[in-house]
Design a binder for these strands. Structure first.
Lengths: 230, 230
DNA sequence: AAGTGTAGGTGTACGTCGTACACTTGTCAA
DNA sequence: TTGACAAGTGTACGACGTACACCTACACTT
């Protein structure tokens, strides 16, 4: 009784409530008009209250991305790699269409969150399971590029490298959690001194995907009598 | 003499100088730390002086994009469509690598500038000249997607439609300046009431490109003994 | 029942941002 | 010489992210 009268000062804030409110707000007012102050307003709380649940706005954005990525369906099982990958990518697309700001926010990030890495890892796993070699999978992931989400480009940018020892520890951790990601990263960077990244030739990857598309175009051009090529 | 002593209060500002200074600043401090005030500083001028040359920050960003797009080489002539397109896209890529902020800024725009439209138009023209039908060209442009620049997706978003009469005039103007763009836009929207856009099935386009890639992947997977598929 | 540590919400304040608006100045045509 | 007009200035305002000190209510011990 007494408890009920004192009652919660609303529903009680939580990281999750903050994140979901932020996503909703961005969905219908646009990401550029999402401010800590408006978000706080929406939650019936003073701006600084949010900082008990997220360290700063950047972290809020990270969390929002994780919410979106969390909406992507897990891989379907019991089919060939192709339709499994296809369905997954279409599910990702649906999530991004629901939250049009998301791809832009992702593109502005340099370091992926664990949730994003997890998604990437399982995506890579689908190709590996489908019989793709490590190298081929690597190129193929680059080809898909923004189709897989939009952040493939510079997954590992080595600009903010920690001290080697720390890096080694992180590496071991990562290898445990994201085996497929590491497999690819490792294959690409055997000779380089930096353990991650830097071994991947961006230019090559770009042209690989470009030529894949151009070859496809040429094939279509040559038989332009199908319904699609009219 | 007297003129020389009075002398220019620096080199004299101009829209061009403003734009290029902005590009330079974004290039080496990042787009998110580019402010009107810092830009003014850089130019040895008070912030409000900039507003005599650009209406607001949005227009500054538009101008900056135009500068970047202006750096893309014109189409080479006297080859087959494929290598012409290839070289052009690689040139676009070089421009975007020089200005990493550009693709992100483009993605945040809903309406393309004339310079961008001009680029698109000439790109489309290359496919048409290469023997691609209007429809096929349309799909192919979508496939290339972010590879062509990053703003293909919703070139014509019909959210901010003007009154029909105005629209008709604009349409005629556009048809004169960007014939290839209009050809494609027209083909895609014959039945819809809105004259531009809305007649293009985004989902279809997405799957078209996706399948093109997946088919290419499958071909590669089946003969994984080449140097690339190891 | 009284005390106390702590997680969660508050209030105030600062520096930065974009830009409205009123002003000065420097240049050139008449 | 005048005076119009384009270019640069100065001041000011509201919105933003967030540091920092504070308060408050509950979960514990004792």
């Amino acid at each position: 009784m007494a408890q009920q009268i004192k009652a919660r000062r609303r529903v009680q804030l939580s990281r999750d409530r903050v994140l979901h409110a932020a996503v909703a707000l961005a969905d219908d007012s646009g990401i550029e008009s999402l401010s800590m102050r408006k978000l706080a307003d929406e939650l019936g709380v003073v701006p600084m209250a949010l900082y008990k649940h997220v360290a700063h706005k950047e972290e809020l954005l990270d969390g929002m991305i994780d919410v979106v990525v969390g909406e992507i369906d897990p891989p379907v099982t019991g089919t060939d790699w192709k339709s499994a990958v296809r369905q997954r990518i279409l599910s990702a697309r649906r999530a991004l269409l629901r939250h049009p700001w998301a791809s832009r926010v992702m593109e502005s990030k340099t370091v992926p969150t664990p949730v994003v890495l997890e998604y990437m890892d399982s995506m890579i796993g689908m190709f590996r399971a489908g019989g793709f070699s490590v190298n081929l999978t690597h190129h193929v992931m680059h080809s898909i590029g923004s189709r897989v989400l939009g952040f493939t480009q510079e997954l590992f940018n080595d600009s903010e490298t920690a001290r080697p020892e720390v890096q080694a520890i992180m590496l071991r951790e990562m290898a445990a959690k994201y085996p497929y990601v590491m497999e690819i990263a490792g294959a690409a960077s055997h000779e380089g001194e930096s353990v991650v990244g830097a071994g991947c030739d961006d230019q090559f990857e770009f042209e690989f995907a470009l030529d894949l598309l151009l070859d496809g175009f040429e094939r279509l051009r040559r038989k332009q009598s199908t319904s699609i090529g009219t």
